[in-house]
Design a protein around this nucleic acid. Sequence first.
RNA 1: GUCCCUAUCGUCUAGAGGCCUAGGACUCCAGGUUUUCAUCCUGGCAACACGAGUUCGAAUCUCGUUAGGGACACCA
Length: 479
Amino acid sequence: MENIRVRFAPSPTGYLHVGGLRTALYNYLLAKKHHGKFLLRIEDTDQSRKVEGAMENLIETLQWAGLDFDEGPTKDGNFGPYIQSQRLPIYQQHAHQLVKEEKAYYCFCSAERLEQVRQKQIAAKVPPSYDRNCRSKSLEEAQKKIEHGERYVIRMKVPLTGELVFEDMIRGKVAIGYKILDDQVILKSDGFPTYHLAVVVDDHLMNISHVIRGEEWLPSTPKHILLYQYFGWEIPQFAHLPLLLNPDKSKLSKRQGDVAVEDYRAKGFLKEAIINFIALLGWNPGDNREIFSLEELVKEFSIERVGKSGAIFNIEKLQWLNQQHIRLKSDDELLALVKPNILEQGWKNFSDDYIKSVINLMKERVTVLPDFVNECKFFYEDPTSFDEKGKSKNWSAETPKHLARFVEKISELQNYTASTIEETLRTTATEFSLSAGKLIHPIRLAVSGISLGPSLFHLLEIVGKETVVRRINFAIKNL
RNA sequence: GUCCCUAUCGUCUAGAGGCCUAGGACUCCAGGUUUUCAUCCUGGCAACACGAGUUCGAAUCUCGUUAGGGACACCA
């Protein structure tokens, strides 16, 4: 494959959808794999749906995920502008050109008339579509109406019979009969193009070689190909990706869970895990590997290995992948990700080294980033309450005496490390003829307030002798 | 309703006619390791939608049925 140019072309209607991210990812992977270009184009031809700040948010999220585009609104190439609302004259010129060549025509039908036609068709149990009322009007007649100030749209002429056959890289041959295709509006009465015109004109002008998009576009692809033919342009390769699905197998949507990439980001999922996860939703390398970095995906990706059937977006595997990717990160990387949350908690008096030692001890035990906060509280503040179950199970009348002795002994420890702490604990247990567990569990409870967690000896080492002594003494008095 | 797409364990998937008594991963269950929990290790449950055909042989090819989904806007 040579000179690959692909694009991700979202509408700025809010956040970046995980399905959108996957589409962007597959485009990105194909481009990078073949040393091509990946462009971002903003499709904002429906002013009514435009959301303030959505484009900035889209770009920010895309870049957070690591999918840098080579050309786009904030990175000019030679094919801009990359925002469709800034390209209006281009579309208008092309639409009128088709009218001139009698491949499209002016339509003056009012919304009311269209609605009447539709109602009649529904009543007659005919599939609703435009009745081509204006198709037979002469150009002169139309011109006159326009001069009188009548509003119009431009519709493309679709052949009345025959069918259009095209090759999809994922689905193979697809054939669709013309008779079910409407004379689609390509230029709206407000002078904006519809998607169908804009996408074809831009993809051509921007030299797009492969159109990789969601399966929902498959049925309208013939309209696009027809437009390419009308303009006499080379038709790009099409690849229609299988849809991402809700657990009930409908198209992935809000209501049934989070669909915004930023939601998963906020929940503490790593970009590496999200990318890895969505890459595997519809694609696999053909062997048993499952953990991939973005760079590895670039190396391994091939569009031929993209599947055809929809994939349910099920976060259980995402969670597992997140665990795996957390382990792959260095303590320093994790520190950078976690420190803001630590500070947010008001835990300000802790050195980076301290936080890193916590991270190091905990990183094989967490699944999402916030676990470094929520499951690590006792590293940063004294427990204010104690787990009741743990107390009834592990705390006896004798316990304070045992713990007092342990405190006494570690206070004298010169070399306070996990191994000397362990040694001290075991000799203390022996003094009282106890199993080590009879000390370990109450000490854990006293120091952390809960009865689960990492290695006690490492926990005690990290927290520090002073704090351990203070917490145990507090527990002896108050438990 | 019409058109289009799709169909392997609960989920993501491997499988391009014999290598399939269908493989891997997640989840779940059991056992082991561990001071607890988690991790980790071992093992287990679990699928070719159905029916015809082609073939010596079909999860793989063809047709049909069924099911699910998508598209049918001056939205993308």
